[in-house]
Simulated scan of single mutants.
Amino acid sequence: EFNPIIKEYAGMRMHMRLTDVYLMYAEALHASKGATAAPDSYGLTAEATVNLFRDRAGIPSVDSAIVGDSNKFMDELRRERAVELCYEAHRWVDIRRWGVAHLDQYRIKTALDFSENQTNFVARLLVDRICEYPKHYWLPFEAKQTQIYEGFDQNPGW
């Protein structure tokens, strides 16, 4: 942004990990062409993209039964994003974008308390997020913004 009074340019850099780019690519490709199809412009399939990360970690490739089922493969993509981007504050945005934030498996957060010898654990509830569909998928507009134009309604539930 250029400030003519100060006469200097202040830029803002966005940081994005290559991992995030690859996983977004895999998700978009899976949604448009499936897990095993590659676009003409780039030879990497959604399946191969996920397997890049699994190979790097020494984990076996995605099972063919999962690849062959669109819903199961999407679940695998979600899991892969959760693992790869676990400390980067993507999760809440991701689960709302996918429309699954209100489901128990995404709403309830637990801790795993391991025994001293690390052979078993007990799950402990940390938080049970309140997430109503569709209200909490959207943020509310300021009330004065919704009053400017008659046809500009508030987001659902607010």
Rank of each mutant, 00 (worst) to 15 (best):
I95Y: 08
I59E: 02
F73T: 05
L126C: 09
L112Y: 09
F53G: 12
N120D: 05
I108S: 11
L77R: 00
D69Q: 05
V83Y: 12
N120R: 12
M74I: 04
K72E: 14
R54H: 02
S70E: 15
G58T: 11
F73N: 03
D75C: 02
N117M: 03
R78N: 07
K72M: 08
I59M: 01
L85A: 04
G58E: 07
R78W: 08
T119H: 04
R56I: 00
E76P: 13
D75V: 01
V83P: 03
S70W: 07
S115R: 04
D75N: 15
D55M: 03
M74C: 06
E88I: 03
G58R: 13
A111M: 03
V83S: 08
K109I: 11
A123E: 14
L112F: 07
I95D: 08
I95L: 11
L126Q: 15
R81W: 10
Y87K: 05
M74L: 12
L125F: 00
R81P: 00
S61D: 14
E84P: 01
A101R: 03
Y106K: 09
E116L: 11
L103W: 11
H102I: 02
S70D: 15
S70I: 00
F114N: 08
I95R: 10
D55E: 13
W92P: 04
W92Q: 10
R97I: 05
W98R: 10
A82H: 14
R124Q: 07
D94Y: 07
L125E: 13
E84A: 03
E88G: 02
A82M: 08
V67T: 10
Y87V: 03
Q105D: 15
E80I: 00
F53C: 02
S61E: 09
V83L: 05
R56F: 09
E76W: 04
F53Y: 12
V122N: 08
R91I: 10
D55G: 01
R79C: 01
A111V: 00
R96L: 15
V83M: 05
G58F: 03
D113C: 06
D94G: 04
W98Y: 10
M74G: 00
A111H: 09
V122K: 13
A101P: 00
L77Q: 11
I108L: 14
N71W: 04
F114P: 04
S70G: 01
T110Q: 14
V93S: 13
K109Q: 12
Q118L: 07
K109L: 10
V67A: 12
R124Y: 03
H102E: 09
I66A: 04
S70A: 12
Y106E: 02
D69I: 06
T110D: 12
G99R: 04
V100N: 12
